[in-house]
Design a binder for these strands. Structure first.
Lengths: 221, 221
DNA sequence: ATTTAAGTGTAACAGATGTTACACTTCAAC
DNA sequence: GTTGAAGTGTAACATCTGTTACACTTAAAT
């Protein structure tokens, strides 16, 4: 699921230095944020393109019943919710909170449009990035639509396996994982315990091992 | 949720007639499909822009555990999954099935790119449409993340109220609604029955009435 | 080394949802 | 009007998940 977007926005981020694909007269501003600050709130107007150029943030959605739903962790450099800049109801769909000191670049909407018509490469990058984000959301939708917790775990771990092999590290604690799955923490712990007892997975701190994919796949049926 | 995209693609759809915003030499083809046919399958390669120019289709996702998750009903004219044309893994995220006789236009990817650089209006339309789709998915995500069935119903009905007032028609039968919510049909029926018994909603066939929004809102907490 | 907070394991119980099954209603086709 | 298919209401039961509570472990801070 977590495809690497690292290089996608290099050109844009290197602006002001030697970003050869971008006009030297681009108007932008940069703002610095401290650790653990909410820099955008769900519902905030999104009237410019914001790009995280250093540090990292997490995004999470607060559902109407007050529950948290973890979405993702974002590391610089990457744009923040760029799709919403052009949507009819252009508001942030999530809360964005810094995990460490972070810098955010702001490019006004009309500037974005100007560069896009000037530089087809930039346009294509923008569209491709948004397409990948859509795919991420679709995947997220698929994860949430799995009804059993073990099914969700299996879906998630199988993705990790296909990306990193059958031993890997997950950078989330139980609480964060539970938020990510949209389930209660003790319920997640219970399911994990059972899966460990059944020999389907091995867990040591944040190190996970999947000895046999097949057993995981069976949980999806 | 179901914003009206009706006019967004008129220019494109009127192509060949007098679509003045589009080049007269655009390469495209049109294919006709009968009722109740699957015209794209989840996983199919998406190497061109497909636009539904007449008829209607439904899209649904089959989750890994084999359950159906209803996504939406699409009426012409509208593009089909345009975001995925440019994603790194450019495959259809859903099954697309015709609900009636339907015609689909196909424009090759490089043609789309050519027109986009030629016609900023078209580019903006494309991006805006995708942005709105992202918002739709985000909303869908929010609906699914609500854990109780009554909560989901409330969320959904409140949207309808804000769009159409407190009396409206829902064009889905119970089975389809249950798929849309990602729950079992008898469970949905039970929740609806209880809500009717408690006087929170009134239902007659596909006609719904919400006498008091407040009671619905209470279900979201 | 001590202290404290964060993170984890687990149990008991309540409540919600899924499953299966079947009767009943509605509607369209003939 | 009869028939059959599709749609709806509902019951009994099994299962799963959430809630709450608390003990225990680990990591970080002093």
């Amino acid at each position: 699921m977590n495809k690497n977007f690292d290089n996608e926005w290099k050109g844009l981020v290197m602006i002001g230095e030697e970003g050869d694909t971008l006009p030297p007269d681009l108007k932008y501003s940069i703002k610095s944020h401290k650790k653990n600050k909410i820099i955008f709130r769900q519902g905030d107007l999104c009237d410019a393109l914001y790009i995280l150029i250093s540090g990292s943030v997490k995004t999470e959605m607060i559902t109407e019943n007050g529950n948290l739903l973890g979405i993702e962790i974002i590391k610089a450099p990457r744009p923040l919710a760029p799709a919403f800049l052009f949507s009819d109801n252009n508001r942030f769909p999530v809360d964005v909170t810094t995990l460490e000191k972070a810098e955010v670049m702001r490019i006004p909407k009309d500037e974005v449009l100007r560069v896009m018509t000037l530089q087809p490469d930039f346009m294509l990058q923008f569209i491709t990035h948004n397409a990948n984000r859509t795919q991420f959301l679709t995947n997220r939708l698929q994860l949430l639509s799995i009804k059993t917790i073990k099914g969700k775990i299996a879906h998630f771990l199988l993705e990790q396996v296909s990306e990193h092999g059958n031993t890997f590290t997950i950078n989330r604690n139980q609480t964060e994982l539970a938020d990510f799955f949209g389930v209660a923490r003790p319920s997640l712990a219970r399911s994990l315990s059972e899966m460990i007892a059944e020999g389907i997975i091995e867990v040591n701190k944040k190190q996970y091992k999947v000895p046999d994919n097949k057993k995981l796949r069976d949980l999806l049926m």
